[in-house]
């Protein structure tokens, strides 16, 4: 596959709405791996208890890059690191992954959005819940569905630039509870 198709799905987040509860992480690892385990979650949330709103939380997930460096770095493209022809979702086939972790190094973001699973010697990443052995999500994303604050959203349009993944999801309901919406 010379020119990879762009993804037809993206995660968006409102970090000013995220409560840092990490429920999305518990759900992500549960639906994919069958256990709640922060180290196996493809979405990584870090909440600073001593932080100041609105810079207290970081929510890190795969951007489904247009030109995915992870895909380019994989020595087994379309076998280990794959792009779904129909949805354009970038995902890892753990059966074929050899654990070279070149995708981990290639990911331009910090922290790397590729997850390392040392005991199985494989890499993992967000597949937008295309393959969830422990959930019949019917096209939904576990993290979006479970977020109690509704701070995550699934979008089909590619966000504009790196900042486009962070959006304002605080509407009238948020204002009704007297929290800032700007």
């Amino acid at each position: 596959m010379s020119t990879p198709p762009i993804s037809k799905g993206y995660l968006l987040v409102d970090t000013r709405k995220c409560a840092g509860c990490c429920t999305c992480m518990l759900a992500c690892s549960l639906v994919h791996e069958g256990e709640s385990n922060l180290s196996l979650s493809k979405i990584q949330v870090v909440s600073d208890t001593f932080g100041h709103y609105p810079t207290d939380v970081a929510v890190n997930f795969c951007r489904q890059c247009e030109n995915p460096a992870c895909y380019s770095a994989c020595p087994l493209p379309d076998q280990a690191l794959c792009i779904d022809e129909k949805t354009g979702v970038r995902y890892i086939n753990q059966e074929e992954c050899t654990g070279c972790y070149q995708c981990v190094e290639a990911c331009p973001y910090t922290p790397s959005r590729i997850i390392v699973r040392p005991e199985k010697n494989v890499a993992m990443k967000c597949d937008l819940c295309q393959n969830t052995p422990y959930w019949e999500g019917e096209g939904k994303q576990a993290c979006v569905s479970i977020c109690p604050m509704k701070a995550l959203k699934f979008a089909t349009e590619k966000p504009e630039g790196p900042d486009g993944y962070t959006v304002n999801l605080r509407g009238e309901g948020w204002a009704k509870l007297k929290f800032p919406t700007d």
């Binding site: 000013r16 509860c21 429920t23 100041h52 709103y53 604050m149 800032p180």
Partner: peptide, 17 residues
């Protein structure tokens, strides 16, 4: 804004500016 304990659905606590 609201913040809370790990895995909570309420997130009853404040995080201040």
């Amino acid at each position: 804004k609201p913040t809370g304990c790990n895995g909570c659905h309420i997130n009853c606590q404040p995080r201040t500016s």
